[in-house]
């Protein structure tokens, strides 16, 4: 008996709606994040992630409402990322019903934020989101911001190492080279990060077919995040989990 690998659908939200395409026919309102979260919960998602890409404070407040309404009806872990700058931001999200938060840009700008969050809430609430791509830094990978558009010259492996020592509990590793390609997760990068990383890794970016998921697990991922393949119904969560189960990976398979 072993710990199950996790499948985590990710929803980008802004202004109370799911943004970036979602294409379901069986939902009354495909753009409602709470309804979509509940659907994924019923289908056996092991966790849910909301990424708040709001541009304004007003929009951000609607995200809190989404978190509240989701936490009231979906009894699986919920991670919320986007716009978190302070421990008070974290507290507000946790009180609203989030179980974990993910931070990215704010931690790059001020790494001490990691220590502050971990000291107050424990490292298990804190996911470090790393948008990495190939570059001429020491490890061959650099950290980017603004969805991969801006390089930072920060070496991705050194940054992960530092963030773990400061107290992050998980790494969400998003390959900016693989993101959107649907040609599979970035396996070499996953293996390089796995070799030096003592906390769980959530792989993100590039999922397009069943075998991509098993390849990523074989390369050391503990959990797999995907968005568009689920939103557009190209693959369903139960099908992905059944496939991985048939490949011998420990999975949480829901019984009827």
């Amino acid at each position: 008996m072993t710990l199950a690998r996790r499948i985590i659908p990710c929803l980008d939200v802004a202004g109370g709606r799911v943004v970036k395409g979602v294409n379901f026919l069986d939902l009354k309102d495909a753009g409602d994040p709470v309804e979509l979260a509940a659907k994924y919960g019923r289908e056996g998602a092991d966790e849910l992630t909301f990424l708040d890409i709001s541009a304004s404070v007003e929009e951000r407040n609607t995200t809190l409402d989404i978190v509240r309404r989701t936490a009231e009806q979906v009894f699986i872990p919920l991670t919320v990322g986007g716009g978190i700058r302070t421990t008070d931001d974290v507290n507000t999200l946790l009180r609203a019903g989030a179980d974990k938060v993910s931070i990215n840009t704010a931690a790059i700008a001020r790494p001490q934020l990691i220590n502050e969050i971990a000291d107050r809430f424990g490292n298990q609430v804190l996911v470090l989101s790393v948008d990495a791509r190939r570059a001429g830094t020491t490890s061959g990978y650099e950290v980017t911001t603004h969805g991969g558009r801006t390089g930072t010259d920060l070496d991705a492996l050194r940054w992960i190492e530092e963030a773990i020592s400061r107290g992050v509990g998980e790494i969400l590793l998003n390959s900016m080279d693989a993101d959107g390609t649907k040609e599979g997760y970035d396996l070499p990068m996953l293996e390089d990060v796995r070799a030096m990383c003592s906390v769980p890794i959530i792989a993100s970016g590039g999922a397009g077919k069943f075998q991509d998921f098993s390849d990523a697990l074989n390369s050391g991922a503990d959990a797999l995040l995907a968005a568009s393949v689920f939103h557009f119904g190209e693959m369903s969560i139960p099908d992905v989990k059944q496939y991985l189960d048939s490949q011998g990976f420990p999975m949480r398979i829901q019984r009827k």
């Binding site: 710990l3 690998r5 996790r6 092991d46 490292n123 998980e170 003592s198 906390v199 769980p200 503990d222």
Partner: peptide
């Protein structure tokens, strides 16, 4: 080897 222990276990 990997901590925290995060996820669904028996």
């Amino acid at each position: 080897p990997i901590l925290p222990h995060i996820g669904w276990n028996t």
